[in-house]
Amino acid sequence: MMTGCVDYPVARSAPEPKVYTVIARCGGWSVRLNGACTRPFRTRSAANRIARLLQRQADALLGGRR
């Protein structure tokens, strides 16, 4: 662990909104975020349901910004 102080203020930038997408992969459908994917679901509707749920939670964490 480093100790010390910051001589100048550091501006915080707003976090980028997370955008979940559904893609065809390995004979099924996966939810993707920034290049990371879930294991494939058998149906696209199941992957869409999970993506919507994750998107709703991510939007709530950002205060509804998107």
Rank of each mutant, 00 (worst) to 15 (best):
M1S: 11
M1L: 12
M2R: 07
M2I: 06
T3I: 04
G4I: 07
G4V: 06
C5D: 08
D7P: 01
D7H: 08
Y8E: 02
P9R: 06
P9A: 06
V10C: 02
A11I: 13
R12T: 10
A14E: 14
P15M: 01
P15Y: 02
P15R: 03
E16L: 11
P17A: 02
K18S: 07
K18L: 06
Y20I: 01
Y20Q: 00
T21V: 07
T21C: 04
V22F: 01
V22C: 08
A24P: 00
R25S: 10
C26P: 00
C26R: 05
G27R: 07
G27P: 01
G27Y: 09
G28Y: 05
W29Q: 00
S30D: 04
V31E: 08
R32V: 07
L33Y: 12
N34A: 13
N34I: 11
G35T: 01
G35L: 00
A36T: 14
A36V: 15
C37S: 10
T38H: 05
T38F: 10
R39C: 05
P40S: 12
F41H: 05
F41E: 01
R42H: 14
T43L: 07
T43S: 15
R44F: 15
S45E: 15
S45Q: 13
S45I: 11
A46M: 02
A47M: 03
A47R: 02
N48T: 01
N48C: 10
R49I: 06
R49Q: 14
I50D: 12
I50A: 14
A51G: 05
L53P: 00
L53S: 11
Q55K: 00
R56T: 12
R56H: 12
R56E: 15
A58M: 07
A58N: 13
D59E: 14
D59H: 13
L61R: 15
L62A: 10
L62G: 03
G63N: 10
G63K: 07
G64V: 04
G64I: 10
R65P: 05
R65C: 14
R66C: 02
R66A: 05
R66V: 12
